[in-house]
Design a protein around this nucleic acid. Structure first.
Lengths: 186, 186
DNA sequence: GTCTATACCAAGATAGAC
DNA sequence: GTCTATCTTGGTATAGAC
């Protein structure tokens, strides 16, 4: 069952799920143990982490590293698209990045004030990804990023594609929008 | 100190703050009592509500009613703007509505699965406000709403105006964006 | 590295005096 | 309507046997 993934890693997985689903306060060590196949309530967990707080920080750090790696991989492997498709591809990649960071975003929204460094960790991580688009210098990109962000978050709120717009439709419309506003040099 | 606001109402206030800040699981009845001026840990709370769950539902219902009233009032009292300012005004009102619903949004994001009806309550409330803009019929408005939503949520994540864009700047750029895309009939 | 057992405490909730 | 006292459960965390 446990395969080759270490218990520590499975704990980090389960913990991140729980923290982002029910918050830090709603997460119990017993439930973490249950999810990774340990007997609940027996504190076996404490052979892997010293405390719930340490687990929280470790889970966030781990997820940040994973997200950054995944987004970087997505950027590197993307093949050069046709000139008139370039915006769709870029927007699609942006949306995937947002989705990949979803649990961290929700964690910040629900626990951002509990652990101030959480915002810093993710903030610097995102900046390091080259996503540091300032409003002054790249207003159009910030606008597009906002639209994708709203589509994502409102979709979470509604628990379905926002206002019935599929990802493809939305991105396609957004790309057309952007072309009109700021036509490509080519 | 307590003025004329009933203890029950002050409990609803404090509870909504706590639920949206630290989640349902992170909120303790003792802390609620403390915030409304009752002795903590004495269960005086239970003279006003039967359980924590009931409090949660009541707090959400109360906040939904308040938000809807506030947004409706904002819509009704807005004076007729100049023709070329109409988009700014509409966008500003949209953003204010989003901000007003902020705590409910965050509550759904963090506790949406705990209480399924939460999504329904807020969903129907928003639909009743005339904000039921479908993608098929009003793609432009959905796009603008998404952009404002992303601006709002990313601002929360960063705990500052998203990428350094002030509300005025962002709305103004978004309005220009929209004028280009879909010029007014006038 | 996992379980048994346990210490300690906080939480949700109730009964009853005032 | 608030407090005292209390019950019960569940949570964090530790010590030690296997």
């Amino acid at each position: 069952m446990s395969g080759r993934i270490s218990t520590r890693e499975r704990i980090l997985d389960a913990a991140l799920d729980l923290f982002s689903d029910v918050g830090f306060g709603g997460t119990s060590i017993s439930e973490v143990e249950r999810r990774v196949g340990l007997a609940a309530g027996t504190g076996s967990f404490y052979r892997h982490f010293r405390s719930k707080e340490e687990l929280f920080r470790a889970a966030v750090e781990c997820e940040v590293a994973r997200c950054m790696a995944a987004v970087a991989a997505d950027r590197d492997q993307s093949s050069a698209p046709d000139a008139h498709e370039v915006r769709e591809v870029v927007l699609q990649r942006m949306l995937r990045a947002i989705q990949r960071f979803d649990r961290l975003f929700r964690l910040i929204l629900s626990e951002g004030d509990r652990i101030p460094e959480l915002r810093d960790v993710i903030g610097t991580a995102l900046a390091g990804l080259g996503e540091s688009l300032t409003w002054k210098e790249h207003p159009t990109e910030v606008l597009l990023l906002s639209a994708l962000g709203g589509y994502h978050f409102f979709g979470l709120v509604q628990a379905q594609p926002f206002q019935g717009a599929s990802e493809e439709e939305f991105i396609s419309a957004l790309a057309a929008f952007a072309r009109e506003w700021d036509p490509p040099a080519a």
